[in-house]
Every structure is written in C-alpha cells, then in structure tokens.
C-alpha cells in the first residue's frame, strides 16, 4: 500500500482534519485513483475508529472528530468520484420518527454509516412512516433506519414497518431501528429487521445487510 494512504488512515483515526486533507490532496497529486484513496485510505481509517468505538476503546468525541476529518477528505474526492462514476456500498434513508425531535444519536449513526461507504439520505426529525417509505422509494434505498429517544414515539417504528408492507417495498428494504429506550425484544415485536445499541454497531450491521 502507498505510504500516503496509510498516513490518511492514521491521521483520520486521530481526528487530524488538516492532515487528512493534506494527505488526500497529496494522494490525488500522486495520481492514485480516487476510489482507491477512499477504499484504502479513508474508509479503513474510519473502520478502525468504528471498531474501537464499538469495543469501548474510544468515545463519541473521538468519533466525531474522526468523522469531521473523514468528511473534509471526502469533500476533495467527491467530484473525482462522480467523474469516475463510482457507486456506494448501498443506500439508507435515515430519520428520527414522527413526534420525536432528538437527533444527536441519529446524526452519529449517519456519520458512522458514511464512514463505511454507505450513502445516507437524512430525512431529519419528526419523520412520518409515509415519509420514510416515500424517501426509500425516491432514493431507491436498500435500508430504512429509524431512531427514537422517547418511549411514546417508539410505536411509530412499528408503523414504519407496516407502511413499508402496505407500499409493497418490504421485501426490497430492510428496516433497522435504534435509540436509547429501544430494545432487541421491541425490534422483534414490531417485525423490524435489525436493532443495534450503538452507532458503530449500526454501521457495521448496515454494511452486513448490504453486502450479504
């Protein structure tokens, strides 16, 4: 592996935004294809961050600064990747369910998923079941991700499952749920496909669902 790709990953792990930008630019200048810079530089770095977070070796702040560094590097690559016609691992529409305005956890999931090369369409907060389904159809998404922080809004996740069934897309999209009060048992009770209890595990699970 090129030295600069290794340096990108290492700088990203440490959340060194300016260094990541510098190394990504260097890699571009050296003529390394943008897809390779992404898959062998940025994504492995973010992968290691995700694993450390899942294993409680690092905490949310380290993830946030790493994601910020990743985004800064990815910005440089975006036009080049578009030119080369590169595609993502898969697509997810993500949002906090109707009646719930909390988005810190959802935003973290978004960053971790982007760090796995997943294309995320963030529908924001207070998202109705119909809007989740509409978003999934519109973006041709493979996954729907629902977040909730309130026990009173958790049942909306079940409505998302039903809305996906009613729209005839249930066999095409997998539905993931999460949030502080959500449990595996609740996930099973509403017929969703996956529950994870932290953002890193959500990204790992989403990647698994998209690639197997």
């Amino acid at each position: 592996m090129s030295e600069v790709l290794k340096q990108i990953g290492e700088a990203l792990e440490k959340g060194k935004r300016k260094l990541v930008v510098q190394y990504v630019q260097q890699a571009i200048d050296e003529g390394i294809p943008p897809q390779q810079i992404l898959t062998e530089g940025l994504l492995p770095g973010m992968d290691r961050v995700g694993v450390k977070f899942r294993d409680n070796e690092i905490f949310v702040p380290e993830v946030l600064v790493a994601a910020r560094a990743m985004n800064a590097g990815a910005e440089l690559l975006k036009p080049l990747l578009a030119e080369a016609g590169a595609t993502s691992v898969g697509k997810i529409v993500l949002g906090t369910v109707k009646g719930d305005l909390h988005d810190i956890g959802k935003n973290l999931v978004k960053m971790m998923m982007e760090g796995k090369g997943i294309e995320v369409f963030d529908l924001g907060v207070d998202v109705s079941p119909e809007a989740f389904v509409q978003g999934a159809i519109e973006h041709d998404a493979d996954l729907i991700g629902c977040s909730a922080l309130l026990t009173t809004t958790m049942p909306v996740m079940g409505e998302v499952v039903k809305a996906a069934e009613a729209a005839g897309i249930r066999d095409k999209v997998k539905i993931m749920i999460g949030g502080a009060p959500v449990t595996k048992e609740f996930c099973e009770s509403i017929g969703a496909d996956a529950y994870t209890d932290d953002a890193a595990s959500a990204a790992i699970k989403a990647y698994e669902l998209l690639t197997t």
Partner: peptide, 8 residues
C-alpha cells in the same frame, strides 16, 4: 427502573 420497562 427504565422508562421502557415502565411503558411496555
């Protein structure tokens, strides 16, 4: 006692 337990 968790809120989830109190609710469900």
């Amino acid at each position: 006692v968790p809120a989830t337990l109190m609710a469900f």
